[in-house]
Design a protein around this nucleic acid. Structure first.
Lengths: 137, 137
DNA sequence: AGACAAAGGTATCTATTGGATACCGATAGC
DNA sequence: GCTATCGGTATCCAATAGATACCTTTGTCT
């Protein structure tokens, strides 16, 4: 009985679901998938839409997404070359969960910014206090 | 009229929602939030439950989550010290979107593993072909 | 008194990853 | 020939993650 036969569990570092979960959360992968939600996009367009990623990193991202079966890569024999990336059905099935997260992020911007300001102010105060204390010794 | 006044948009690199979106997708942050879904957990327990993170990285993760107002940190004046981390209401509001993603990941493990195998096999074949070609020259 | 243990970290160093930049190969148009 | 386009690679440097050792406080054990 091997680990891989157990039910998938993200908290088990040996479970593939964990790697997959973290791949989805990848800095660029999730953005790429959402951009591809409207249909196939070519490499250079993708680079523009997902502001701002270097070609090396975008290529890496696309390769792993392709390997995982979330997108397909189609090369057209033209010059200059044309390469389209598009979601597979499995890739499309990720759109809904991802858009929920996206909506969450977009709607909580103000609250989070406030929380940050409050935290940073508190930190500044604490720092000021300890410095003063230091000077008073 | 500044960028920060525009509607939140993850695809805009200057929009805070993007940073927030990527923070959620952070390798450890999302796992921590899900673990805290069942109630407060202390540092060492968290380390065990979120297998396997180094103390430095866990501390960093917890600090940013605290700064963003997603968790609170409570210190009990005991020896040895006890520090509890728990979700704020905003943190709790992330549980549902995250669990969707988690379910997606856990349920698609087999399909993705197959896709990987297929991709790697295709790569091996292509490599073998080019090598053979190389030898035949 | 001295040694040791527990919890929640921090400090330091190294390995891995991400990013900036330059360049390549094929071909069409000038 | 020279230049531009597209989809990348190659190379190098900076930022991040990870491994490991160590610190602090106080209670307990000997």
């Amino acid at each position: 009985m091997d680990t891989k036969d157990l039910p998938a569990n993200i908290l088990d570092p040996n479970c593939p679901s964990r790697v997959i979960f973290q791949r989805i959360g990848d800095k660029w992968a999730s953005l790429v998938i959402q951009v591809l939600g409207d249909g196939p996009v070519r490499f250079s367009e993708l680079r523009k839409m997902v502001n701002v990623v270097t070609p090396k990193v975008l290529t890496q991202t696309l390769r792993t997404l392709e390997r995982d079966g979330l997108i397909t890569r189609t090369v057209y024999a033209q010059v200059p070359p044309r390469v389209d990336y598009q979601l597979t059905p499995m890739g499309e099935s990720l759109l809904q969960p991802l858009s929920l997260l996206r909506e969450w992020a977009e709607s909580h911007v103000p609250t989070i910014m406030e929380a940050r300001d409050a935290y940073d102010d508190a930190q500044d105060q604490a720092l000021l206090g300890s410095t003063t204390q230091g000077l008073l010794q």
